[in-house]
Amino acid sequence: MLIAASDSTLSGVAAWAVSLMETLGGVGAGIAIALENLFPPLPSEIILPLAGFTASQGNMGLAEAIIWTTIGSLVGAFALYGLGAWLGRERLIKIADWMPLVKVSEVESAEKWFGKHGKKAIFFGRMLPIFRSLISIPAGVERMSIVWFGALTLAGSLIWNTVFILAGFYLGENWHIVEEYADILKYIVIAGVVIALAVWIVYRVRAARREGTGTDG
């Protein structure tokens, strides 16, 4: 059993997620994140740190938590992609209008963002609340390449899941602090990814120039 978390802390979504992970381990964490993708109001900012906390208590391995939650992210994302491709924009807008806690304006914002940024929207969208789920819908409606969609979803989800699970793992009983600072952590993660990509691009450009100079010589 998970210890040291107060009854008030482990309530609602948290209690449900803990029960699922205690019962099924990493698979339970994957199911919780898959459902979080399908139902955006479920907060990954709670589920992921809890997965890390569960791992710190020995209920599952750290790598197991990261792998299964990333699989869950892919399953949920592909489910929404499939719905977008199958039902189309208008039907999904009507469904979103019917669903509690989901705003049509958020779906439309995800649609506009995807239309403007394309592949980048899929990758970085995995690191933004609400967009993390909804960005799959316009990708499906527009029949984006499944290979690109899967690869970018995998990369973005793996980064996001790993950061939040590690935070929960090392914070232990104080895992709930992650939720309080989720917005700040979000920007730190995105900034870190952008910097890493910039460094990689600079490295590749310099390497190409060195190779070109060597060839000319």
Rank of each mutant, 00 (worst) to 15 (best):
M1T: 12
L2Q: 00
A5R: 13
S6W: 07
D7L: 10
G12F: 07
A14K: 07
A15L: 14
W16C: 00
A17W: 06
M21Y: 08
M21D: 15
E22L: 05
T23A: 11
L24G: 00
G25M: 02
G25H: 05
V27S: 03
G28E: 04
G28P: 05
A32P: 11
A34W: 07
A34C: 10
L35V: 12
L35S: 00
L38D: 09
P41L: 06
P43C: 09
I46M: 06
L50H: 07
G52K: 03
A55W: 04
G58F: 07
G58K: 05
M60R: 00
L62K: 06
L62H: 05
E64K: 10
E64F: 09
I67C: 02
I71M: 09
S73N: 14
L74F: 07
V75A: 13
A77K: 05
F78P: 00
A79D: 01
L80A: 06
G82D: 09
G82R: 02
L83V: 11
G84D: 06
A85D: 11
W86S: 12
G88H: 05
R89T: 02
R89S: 10
E90I: 02
R91I: 03
L92Q: 03
L92F: 09
W98M: 09
L101Y: 10
V104D: 01
S105M: 05
E106N: 10
V107Y: 02
E108W: 03
E111D: 15
K112P: 03
K112M: 10
K112T: 10
K116I: 13
K119S: 15
K120P: 05
A121C: 06
F123I: 06
F123N: 07
F124P: 04
R126D: 12
F131Y: 11
R132K: 08
R132P: 13
L134I: 10
S136E: 06
A139F: 05
V141W: 02
E142N: 10
M144E: 04
V147G: 01
L158M: 13
L158E: 08
V163S: 06
L166G: 01
F169W: 13
Y170H: 10
L171I: 09
G172W: 03
G172A: 02
G172S: 02
G172F: 03
N174Q: 14
N174V: 02
V178K: 00
V178P: 00
E180I: 14
E180N: 09
E180S: 12
D183S: 12
V194T: 03
V194D: 11
I195D: 08
A196S: 11
L197R: 00
V199L: 13
W200Y: 13
I201W: 15
V202T: 08
R204G: 05
R204I: 10
R204F: 12
V205S: 08
R206I: 12
R209P: 01
R209D: 14
E211T: 07
T213F: 13
G214R: 15
D216R: 09
D216G: 05
D216V: 15
